[in-house]
């Protein structure tokens, strides 16, 4: 868990696991809002870059949430 995208993917998936039990739509909303509120821009930029590179390792809710967030940005 030292290289940066791995760690951010792990963190994003952790957030996803909390919201997962609320159902897909609310989870996507909750995850994107959480990342927008608490992640500094360089972290968001890195995870977006990872998303553009295919988003390997991101859980489905998280993938959708990040895509939504990226469109808003």
């Amino acid at each position: 868990m030292s290289s940066s995208p791995d760690k951010l993917v792990y963190m994003a998936n952790q957030i996803g696991k909390f919201f997962h039990s609320q159902g897909h739509d609310r989870a996507v909303q909750g995850i994107s809002e959480h990342i927008w509120k608490f992640w500094d821009p360089r972290m968001r930029k890195q995870i977006f870059a990872h998303l553009d590179a295919g988003g390997a390792g991101l859980d489905p809710d998280v993938l959708d949430a990040l895509q939504k967030l990226k469109q808003q940005a």
Binding site: S2, S4, K7, K37, F38, W39, D40, P41, R42, M43
Partner: peptide
């Protein structure tokens, strides 16, 4: 207007060089 780094994020960013 952008949120900043939290302590563990600061450490990661330091190792990364930013």
């Amino acid at each position: 207007k952008e949120p900043g780094l939290r302590i563990p994020n600061m450490f990661d960013a330091a190792i990364e060089g930013t």
